[in-house]
């Protein structure tokens, strides 16, 4: 077998150009997903009422179906649905077919990540003892103050490793964004691979890039974790 190293070097440089897109999808998705995921976690914590049930069904459905299927479904539904809504229902002069397809990537991955994060937040909230809320109420804090100042800071620390996992998984899932014609790392390498049948080289490059990106993400989370969990680290000391 002949490995084309020159091609690999070129592909590496070219796929570097896709990194901003990959990171953009990951970051925007996280920003969109965190607030609704948090409120879903709170709703599910109550364990009763219609909100809790709806949230549970949503999480179960999203976690029970492959991401690729969610992408295919929404990408074949959303453009024409949005077009119909904008032009027919609201009579706006919008051409959704000219939109950057990255918008669909934001939507699809956010729907998915919201479900994942709501599970993460729920289990994190349940790790904070009930006594912490009682302690806060007994000194006169309101429920909202208790959440903001006592419960959430502790829940966040215990959630960080799982948030890191979710982020790594999200980053990996964005490799499927090429199905929505988004020009991320994988898409660029795929196109280049098809030129001269240099498949192995192209995908090996992508593989290395993902490992590097994942490493950076994990190091970042480690740093944040170390910073936030000062009160826990001292236990070991």
């Amino acid at each position: 077998m002949h490995i084309n190293t020159e091609f690999m070097a070129e592909t590496f440089l070219a796929s570097l150009g896709g990194i901003p897109v990959t990171l953009e999808i990951t970051l925007v998705t996280l920003l969109i997903s965190v607030p609704p995921a948090f409120f879903m976690a709170l709703a599910r914590q109550r364990r009763k009422g219609i909100g809790s049930r709806l949230a549970s069904a949503y999480v179960s459905f999203i976690r029970g179906t492959p991401v690729v299927l969610q992408i295919l479904f929404l990408y074949s539904l959303l453009p024409s649905l949005l077009n119909y809504l904008f032009t027919q229902v609201m009579s706006l002069q919008v051409n959704v077919f000219k939109w950057n397809t990255i918008l669909y990537a934001f939507i699809v991955f956010s729907l998915n990540t919201t479900a994942v994060l709501s599970e993460v937040f729920r289990s994190a909230l349940s790790t904070v003892e009930h006594g912490q809320m009682e302690g806060a109420l007994s000194v006169g804090l309101s429920r909202r103050q208790a959440y903001a100042r006592i419960i959430l800071p502790q829940a966040l620390v215990s959630a960080l490793p799982n948030i890191c996992n979710a982020t790594v998984n999200l980053l990996k899932s964005t490799s499927l964004a090429f199905m929505m014609t988004v020009q991320d790392i994988t898409a660029i390498a795929k196109v280049r691979a098809a030129y001269g049948y240099n498949y192995i080289e192209a995908y090996l490059v992508v593989l290395v890039v993902y490992i590097l990106l994942c490493t950076v993400v994990q190091l970042l989370f480690k740093a944040v974790e170390r910073y936030l969990s000062s009160y826990k680290k001292l236990i070991a000391a």
Binding site: E134, G135, S138, V139, S142, Q145, I150, P153
Partner: peptide, 27 residues
Amino acid sequence: TGFVFQNYNLFANKTALQNVTEGLTVA
């Protein structure tokens, strides 16, 4: 009123001093 709990229920993410000031400054 003040309440002292059987298992303390101190705020795990606050120092001793912050545990005491919390009810003063925030509430």
